[in-house]
Design a protein around this nucleic acid. Structure first.
Length: 562
RNA sequence: CGGGGUGUAGUUCAUCGGUAGAACGCCCGCUUUGGGAGCGGGAAGCAGCAGGUCCAAUUCCUGUCACCCCGACCA
């Protein structure tokens, strides 16, 4: 490819709206342009990288036995109604009607479509398992697009869906996909942490994000560097027992003229924070009250809380609602609370005795409160928020990290197959049974941006070889003379004849400095210069990632690149 | 959806009540070619949009839209 004819030019200045390095460099180097927020053009250079990433994913998915196919972009809305997801998917669906008023949603993920496809066939246990995948543009009307390619409203995703006779069989595929993803990201030059994450309605241990550690990432997770990594939403930790050797004392109500905060309680009673009970009144989407109770030195993880309370969305109760329940903000307690409130107690409540808390009355507290004896919880579960420094199950301190989620693997179980009629296979006992499912996604544009976030310097991008738009950036200098020009063109042709992708900077009226600067910005791994200085069969080469240049022959160059 | 910010040439920014300017980029010419070359010439703008105030609005006011950042949200 001749650079003089390549569509998309480099620019010197950084667009003011681009705050992330990946956005700035991809824009300046001529890989992408914005259409509107969250929707981007991929220019020829950008598309080349995007396709390399796609091809690496495709090869590894195929090696793992998955089969590629495609799905219509417009999904019949009734399929989403069948699983009751029109309102429950996290991202906003976009919808459209055809001339006959048939309603469609623009695909944001494709579980329903794949189940609908598979149920068109008479599936037997002999057909299972299989894993179907596609590359397709996903539409998600995100509340807020962000950071160039980091969070888009329209992006190509590799999404795979596996179908199984049983959970055991699914687990094998899950492990296979985990290994496949690890290989994919390795090929792409990315080091990923495999992070346990939240899979909403299903729970269980089969849901992981592949996260590339980065300050600009949106995924917060904790790791102990000993094999345990988990998203903040689901991370568990060990808490020590506090005063379990104390005798349980008689509960008493005392005057407590204090402010509403935990610290006010600590000061007034001169007791440790951990001995206090923290009470958080929440309301679910149906108006049901849920009281979360936890040891005072810990915080409630609202994602865990929503799961155990089987709530879709929780909000904090208002002052008025709390008073209506016969309690008082700042003095809430599970002791003698209205039956209308479902009490969720954290496991940490078992690590303290003789706790203190409010008395559901203004300026009254209770001392020596003990679980089971003085109050009962409706649900006892882990609802604690893990933080850096807490101790992991491997007895190591947790470290908090941020990263970019480039892929994820999910257990779907029977969630879709049980909701959608006819989503069954015929088992060897003759009975129809729902299939057990998993799904596996990778966002290509986000992965591309992540690579740039990880591989760049002050001059520009430094593409890993596997995804570079071209293998060689051939720069011709002194091209007005026929001999140098001829040599450069010959080298270009010879490299291309060897199936080596070459970007040939053939511009005659551009200074050497400008060409070098463009080359550094675009980031092709190997730069080759042909000029008056490169006499005989020697070529001047320099790797983008290194400082030194060397003179070698064309044959040596080809050997090096192969 | 809440908070903050920005909209002026392709880009980065000036001008700030009197009707628009620079640099970079682009085009033409000449000179140049090893780290973003020089000189000369040129094209390029409904100042986001709509209202209002004013003799006069890019400038002040109101609304609206778009974009960016923080948060909420995020299979």
């Amino acid at each position: 490819m001749k650079y003089s004819k390549l569509f998309g030019k480099t620019i010197k200045e950084t667009p003011k709206d681009a705050t992330l390095v990946s956005h700035q460099l991809l824009y300046r180097a001529g890989f992408i342009r914005e259409s509107v927020a969250g929707r981007y053009y991929f220019l020829p250079l950008g598309l080349r990288v995007h396709e390399k990433i796609q091809q690496i994913i495709r090869q590894e998915m195929n090696k793992a036995g998955a089969q590629e196919m495609t799905t219509p972009v417009l999904h019949p809305k009734h399929l989403w109604e069948e699983t009751n997801r029109t309102n429950s998917v996290g991202f906003e669906l976009m919808s459209i009607k055809d001339r006959q008023e048939m309603e469609f949603v623009l695909g944001g993920t494709a579980e329903e479509m794949l189940v609908d496809l598979v149920r068109k066939f008479q599936i037997s246990y002999k057909d299972l398992p299989f894993n179907l995948y596609q590359f397709s543009t996903k539409f998600r009307d995100e509340a807020r697009a962000r950071g160039g390619l980091l969070r888009l409203r329209e992006f190509v995703m590799k999404d795979a869906y596996s179908f199984h006779t049983s959970e055991e069989d699914f687990k094998k595929e899950y492990e296979s996909m985990k290994a496949t993803y690890t290989r994919i990201f390795q090929h792409l030059g990315l080091k990923t942490d495999i992070v346990e994450s939240d899979n909403g309605y299903i729970g269980g241990e089969y849901c992981h994000e592949f996260v590339v550690e980065s300050e600009i990432g949106e995924s917060r997770y904790l790791t102990d560097n000993e094999g345990y990594s988990a998203h903040e939403d689901v991370a568990v930790f060990e808490f020590e027992n506090k005063n379990l050797d104390e005798e349980e004392k008689q509960m008493v109500e005392v005057d407590a003229v204090r402010g509403p905060t935990m610290e006010d309680g600590v000061k007034l009673h001169n007791l440790p924070l951990w001995q206090q009970m923290k009470d958080l009144m929440m309301v679910d989407e149906n108006g049901n009250f849920i009281l979360a109770v936890i040891r005072g030195d810990l915080e409630v993880n609202e994602v865990k809380l929503a799961h155990v309370a089987k709530a879709y969305r929780l909000r904090h109760a208002t002052v008025e609602e709390i008073r209506e329940l016969g309690s008082e903000p700042g003095f809430i307690s599970p002791v003698g609370l209205s039956d209308r409130v479902k009490v969720v107690g954290d496991l940490s409540l078992r690590t303290i005795k003789n706790a203190y808390t409010g008395a559901n009355k203004k300026h009254k507290d209770l001392l020596n409160v003990n679980i089971d004896k003085d109050y009962k919880v409706d649900i006892e579960a882990d609802i604690a928020l893990a933080k850096a420094g807490y101790i992991s199950k491997n007895h190591k301190p947790l470290i908090a990290k941020k990263g970019i989620e480039v892929g994820n693997i999910f257990q779907l179980g029977f969630h879709y197959s049980s909701k959608m009629t006819g989503a069954n296979f015929r088992d060897n006992d003759g009975l129809e049974k729902p299939y057990y499912m998993g799904c596996y996604g990778i966002g290509l544009a986000r992965t591309l941006a992540t690579i740039v976030e990880k591989f760049s310097d002050e001059k520009g991008i430094i593409w890993p070889k596997a995804v570079a738009p071209f293998k060689v950036h051939l720069i011709g200098l002194d091209l007005e003379g026929e001999s140098v020009k001829g040599k450069a063109e010959r080298i270009c042709n010879l490299l291309q004849a060897e199936d080596i992708e070459v970007l040939f900077d053939d511009r005659i009226d551009t200074s050497a400095g400008a060409k070098f600067a463009d080359s550094d910005l675009i980031g092709i791994p190997c730069r080759v210069v042909v000029s008056k200085k490169t006499e005989g069969d020697k070529l001047e080469i320099k790797k983008r990632s290194e400082k030194e240049t060397q003179f070698i022959s064309l044959k040596e160059l080809i050997d090096m690149l192969k």
